[in-house]
Nucleic acid binder design. Sequence first.
RNA 1: CGGGGCGUAGCGCAGUCCGGUAGCGCGUCUGGUUUGGGACCAGAAGGUCCCGGGUUCAAAUCCCGGCGCCCCGACCA
Length: 497
Amino acid sequence: MAQAQRITPRAQDFSEWYNDVIMQAELADYSPVRGCMVIRPLGYRIWELMQRALDDMFAATGHRNAYFPVFIPMSFLAKEAEHVEGFAKEVALVTHTRLKATGKTGAGAVAVDPSSALDEPLVVRPTSETIIYAMFAKWIQSYRDLPLLLNQWCNVVRWELRTRLFLRTTEFLWQEGHTAHATEGEAEAEARLILGIYRNFAEEWMAMPVLTGVKTDSEKFAGALRTYAMEALMQDNKGLQAGTTHNLGQNFAKAFEVKYQTAAGALEHVWNTSWGVSTRLVGGLIMTHSDDNGLIAPPKLAPVQAVIVPIWKTDQERSQVSGVGDQVKAALSKAGIRVELDLRDNLKPGAKYFEWEAKGVPLRLEIGPRDVAAGQVVAARRTGGKSPMRLEGIVAAAPAALQEIQAGLFATAKQRREEHSLRGATKQQFLEFMKGSGGFAYAGFCGGGECEAAIKAATGATIRVLPDPEFRSPEAPKTCLWCDEPSVAEAVWAQAY
RNA sequence: CGGGGCGUAGCGCAGUCCGGUAGCGCGUCUGGUUUGGGACCAGAAGGUCCCGGGUUCAAAUCCCGGCGCCCCGACCA
């Protein structure tokens, strides 16, 4: 009996499981360059579906897309003090513009042409605040030019020491929104608005429950006044920062002289925001839903939402079930479902089941001679369960099943998160929690960076977020988890990616 | 950047300790029989054994030096 390669079970080794799922679902592959990955068609399709949904939401709230260059003058990065410090250790530089042939063969056939050194090296963007606000300075003169609401979809490079497919790669894809406003209040409202969009996207499209809130100083974006984030809990009970929005205050406006004239005639610096989500979301999607059989894609983001697997013995049966398969495919396709009909005859049906399961397809429709005779298909859900589905009502029943799967994934993930959340713990309980299964621990925080650092040193856990009101515990904690001084805010702690 | 593991056919591995002409499973190709949960038979193709140097009559195997990748920790979305 031929057995394809198995996926390492989650319980045995979560990291290996994660890599196995990606490889077997053919979402991505390692590149010849360390820390970089190739996103394969199936993985890229998920990203495209994410892009489309988010892009529509950005557009609906008045944002427009633009594109800024990948190369940034090195001097730009130095203009905002905190920002440089944050990124200096991980920027890639372009220092030369030419190679030359050496006349040798093999690896030494080309070499850097020393005469082509750039006077000022170019930074490969790790993020685009500097180049974008340099341009904003040109474009913004009057309060009539505000707000300026831009977004760009692009790649960025951060020279990470330790990489993981989708979660942290040297080059990754993302969107970065950049806005300029007349007042602090408007910038603050923008940062909160986008955080809400991110949360909505995570919950409604990814079926991934998130906590939202504000980051502490030690975790905020380099150069920001305040950073907001959404945080999700993965199946290994580690937190994942899934998106951030920043109120940049006037830090960059001052560094890049982005000024506007008010209605009263005064000259003032603008207030900026920036915000982003990346291909890391694909990693979050994988680690939220998938199981030991492979990927589970939430229907709304599944590249293939339904696959039809015909089953036959004789040629006559084959043409019969294929014919019905064609009809079902056409009908579902017309109903807006992304559907495939798997007519390969070199694989037995069972082999196809395993393959499509590994690839995360939410709904499988099996059609055999007995089903044709009965006027039905057998509908198997990726999340478990098989049941007959009448052919006549299939254009309604299939979308309904997909909706149920989508809702079920969210409910399951949310329940798991709650089961791995600890509220009102003592210091001792907290330590045991972090040493044990881990998860989100809610506790009082004195606001001191020393306590934050001490807890990180002791447990590896960091404050993921000071949660927004709707996520806070019914009763506010009165004292700091670590030092017992009065608590200034409830904090959510977790070991995180 | 430290610790661990690994580098042999497209993929997963054995062979390395103890040197002697390159193996297994899966996949691929051809033909046939199959198909309601990973098909079977027969045949075939496919390898700079990570790279460089050394020892030896002889190196995947021993010695020296590199490189790469994965996993774990410190730093980060």
